[in-house]
Write a protein that binds this DNA or RNA. Structure first.
Lengths: 198, 198
DNA sequence: CCTTTTATTGAACCATGTTCAAAAACTAAC
DNA sequence: GTTAGTTTTTGAACATGGTTCAATAAAAGG
């Protein structure tokens, strides 16, 4: 049986991702410790490094899961809304983003905690997922601004995503701003309706 | 001489902040190591802990400097612009913020790297500086929206700051978006002019 | 001077990511 | 089934780095 090792390692990978995810949820990325993971996943300390290059790689595997989950949530917010006002579609999408971030605060933060730790390139799937997110935004925007070309729309899409991201980011930062979720929603709604008002 | 020790410690504090700041500039907050700081500041390892509770406290002292410097830059962008169109004033301010962030990337990032590390409260001066930043934004906004009350303006101010912050944040994240500064400026300009268009 | 108090020091402690020589498990050949 | 070779797994050991604290030095008081 050639695939026996592969399979066992795949199982271990899974268990480590599970354990890591659980830990990130309760204590954030910084609380994810190699020895705890090994204990939780029922493997030796070194075994982690048989299936992941380092803990950053494990963190990225967790991020892949989170990103996929978030993608589904954002996509779901647009299901059957083709006829809905584009502005309102953007609000629905942003609220989906906000609520995902609020309900998965530590996992969501981990998504954007990749850069400073290592100097490896961001993996392709990450940029792909981000691209998918952007395309969700671009669709209603294209309806709102049919006169804009691809480049202009692209810039606008990034600007809008970044803006909503910023509002969610600082809105969830209890330490700094401490705004209730409903107010964050209101900020997003205001921003998006201003944008739509040409 | 009673103040002799105080004075020597104050000098050491200063040297440590200098050394730490220099290190953050070149390698980010994570590259700031206790032993390096001691060597650079010409003191023993333990001496750091005579003048700072821990490295997080030193990081905060560096942040205090950075924040003050940034406050000056933003304030300067508004000097003598009382007669200028409020929209344009917001653009000037945001561009000042953007350029400060771009030219002081690691120091600027350190400003927002306080929360996850420790669970101590954000110091008062930090919230004060942030409040000052907000009030700079609130002034042109109040001109643009004279009908809004204090609460509404406050919400709008936060939303706007967060939006610009988000655009700057992701715009500078070379790893993720890789947008030239001029395009980031363009994003901010578009956003702000949309906001002003009632 | 000697004593007491205060400040400074850096070796040691602890936590934690990562490695790698040795052990274990597995495979193939006979 | 046994041996020899190969692959996988292991966890003790290493490297790094923040923090502490007993020991030392400096300062103050008498």
């Amino acid at each position: 049986m050639a695939g026996k090792v592969q399979e066992r390692q795949a199982k271990l990978r899974e268990r480590l991702i599970d354990a890591g995810e659980a830990q990130v949820i309760v204590g954030g990325l910084v609380s994810m410790k190699a020895r705890d993971l090994a204990a939780e996943a029922g493997c030796s300390l070194g075994a982690i490094y048989n299936v992941f290059d380092d803990l950053a790689a494990l963190a990225m595997a967790i991020n892949a899961r989170t990103f996929a989950r978030m993608g589904k949530v954002v996509a779901a917010s647009q299901m059957g809304t083709a006829a809905v006002d584009p502005n309102e579609r953007l609000v629905l999408m942003s609220n989906a983003y906000l609520h995902f971030a609020a309900e998965n605060a530590n996992l969501w933060r981990a998504l954007f905690d990749i850069e400073m730790s290592t100097d490896t390139r961001v993996p392709a799937w990450y940029l792909d997922e981000l691209g998918r997110l952007f395309s969700f935004i671009a669709a209603p925007l294209a309806e709102l601004f049919p006169e804009k070309n691809k480049t202009e729309l692209d810039l606008m899409t990034r600007a809008l995503f970044s803006s909503v991201h910023g509002i969610v980011l600082l809105g969830l930062e209890k330490r700094i701003s401490a705004v209730p979720i409903a107010q964050v929603e209101e900020m997003i709604r205001q921003l998006l309706f201003q944008i739509g008002n040409k």
